[in-house]
Design a binder for these strands. Structure first.
Lengths: 186, 186
DNA sequence: CCTGCAGTTTGACGCAGATCAAATCAGAGG
DNA sequence: CCTCTGATTTGATCTGCGTCAAACTGCAGG
């Protein structure tokens, strides 16, 4: 606590915990992501971060970061930008959870993964899902059966090819269209 | 843009916009809240903030805040704490949208309002809802009819007294229990 | 190679909440 | 006081997704 964590390599999830023991996946993190920004205000992390494959994490003491920020304005700005992006991202997730149907949620999720892999120099159309269907479901506010069914459905429609955890996007435009549409709800 | 906004008095909502024109309420703000923290990273506000009653807003240029932060460590820490709290709050909303049923969502919403009024010196059990049922629904990922029905249901159960937009909480423990329970989903 | 287990797929069924519709209510303006 | 309009309530019906159940797959350990 009172540190931030930079993910240098690997893949992780963060989970929010309920008082009653139930938990929900709040996000997936990959190389370069900064984690733990929820804890600055409360001295206590709301999330557990759990590695989904061998990962390398760098501990950043908050006091060091704040001291350096005062001396290096560009670092300060960068840090603020990162926190802000986290907030903006969360708004996107709220939108997703609050007003999208299962197909749209999954399409948005896959497109987001795709973009993030692309930004890191990996293929944007073919990658490995490191998380289980249940974890995807938890993140998207769906049950694992619904995730599985929706993936199968996308496959029969020819939008993607799924083989266990390996995934290939065949019609990225169709997925984008799905997300843009908002055929119903809210 | 490139300013933050402190709400000095009044009551506002912020809405996230879809590409396709649809919008969702991302949060409600009252006296003392800081708004616009989603825009630091992107140079562009994702949200429109709209006053729900006469409000008084104070513009805080980001560059000023950053300059002052460098000189006054306690201000810097305070700012970081506020951003962090926003992130933590968003995680709470994600939990709510992803894994709670209608009754639990509404109970959580009312309890949150109650706490915030209390923190500002107003009654924690009797207050005016400044937003419409539709806005509540949008925030909670429900339709206005469901919000209305659930409020009615709470009323017949004796948990609260609702008269149009005026609300009185009668059994706060019962509401808290509802939120803690998590009888189903996810 | 066999076994066990966690993860996944698929089907059948039920329900919470969306949708459609209509009646009522409250406040603003004349 | 009356009218108009947007907000709210309430009912009836529909449906997407959750729930329950069963079979299948792939991998790790013996």
């Amino acid at each position: 606590m009172h540190s931030l964590y930079a993910l240098r390599s690997g893949f992780m999830k963060s989970c929010v915990l309920h008082e009653d023991g139930r938990e929900q996946v709040a996000g997936f993190h990959m190389m370069g992501d900064l984690m733990g920004m929820d804890a600055i205000g409360s001295n206590q992390h709301l999330c557990d971060s759990i590695a989904l494959e061998d990962s390398d994490v760098c501990d950043i003491p908050l006091t060091d970061l704040e001291t350096l920020s005062r001396e290096i304005p560009s670092l300060q700005q960068h840090f603020h930008r990162i926190m802000s992006r986290e907030i903006a991202h969360d708004y996107g997730v709220m939108l997703l959870l609050g007003s999208m149907r299962a197909e749209e949620r999954l399409a948005a999720f896959l497109l987001n993964l795709s973009q993030r892999f692309a930004a890191r120099g990996y293929s944007s159309t073919e990658f490995h899902l490191r998380m289980t269907r249940e974890e995807i479901g938890s993140y998207l506010g769906l049950k694992l059966e619904t995730v599985s069914r929706t993936l199968s459905h996308f496959q029969t429609e020819g939008l993607l090819a799924v083989q266990n955890k390996h995934l290939r996007i065949l019609k990225i435009e169709a997925l984008q269209e799905l997300v843009g549409q908002h055929s119903c709800r809210s």
